[in-house]
Design a protein around this nucleic acid. Structure first.
Length: 190
DNA sequence: GTTAAGATCTGCT
DNA sequence: GCAGATCTTAACG
């Protein structure tokens, strides 16, 4: 993966991540999906961002190099997966909220529960991490390498229609349109 | 040491 | 459509 596009600007990174492949390799096999929903979290004037009140133990990873993973635990049950972006040391990241399942569907169903409809396999931050077996052992991992990596996708022109909306699940800064989605895709979280 | 709140999901009404 | 589960993190004493 060419990751220079990540360090220039976090909002631009959030838009460009749409349509890319996210791939995960474990002993059980390979799963992959196409990113269809992201949110940008900025350091300047963005109270919803974990890094807005300075560097802490939890968010230290956000201040690392662009292109690594920031994984954290929320609500006692679920993980959220972010891609660190912006200049190193600034504390910005892109939350990946949903992917369109592409490969390893059976393995995803096994992790999410038998009988889980395809559109619910990874349509939300917590579900995505379950389907991809992402946990805090991957916090700080370089996303250009196995066992978790991003890859270009040049074959999906329908992924180019991008829409921005207010972010979801936060209680502050709801006026900012920093959520980016592939318009009309069936696998969005909502 | 204690406490309140959170970038969510599932199940039940 | 809405409330509950569940525990880590960070702020405060």
């Amino acid at each position: 993966m060419e990751k220079r596009f990540l360090e220039h600007d976090t909002v631009e990174a959030a838009r460009k991540l749409l349509g890319m492949y996210l791939c995960r390799v474990t002993g059980e096999g390979l799963v992959s999906g196409i990113i269809v929903e992201t949110e940008a979290y900025l350091s300047n004037n963005d109270p919803a961002c974990h890094a807005s009140r300075g560097r802490t133990r939890r968010n230290a990873t956000m201040f690392g190099a662009p292109g690594i993973a920031y994984v954290y635990f929320i609500y006692g049950n679920y993980y959220c997966f972010n891609v660190v972006a912006g200049p190193e040391g600034k504390g910005e990241a892109v939350l990946v909220r949903a992917v369109e399942p592409a490969g390893g569907l059976e393995l995803m169903r096994k992790r999410r529960g038998e009988g889980c409809p395809d559109k619910n396999l990874a349509s939300g931050p917590g579900k995505l991490c379950q389907a991809f077996a992402i946990d805090r052992s991957l916090d700080g991992h370089d996303l250009s390498q196995k066992p978790l990596y991003l890859a270009e996708n040049l074959a999906r022109p329908d992924m180019l229609t991008i829409q921005s909306t207010p972010r979801i699940g936060i209680s502050s800064a709801q006026d900012k349109c920093l959520r980016f989605i592939v318009t009309g895709n069936k696998y969005l979280s909502r």
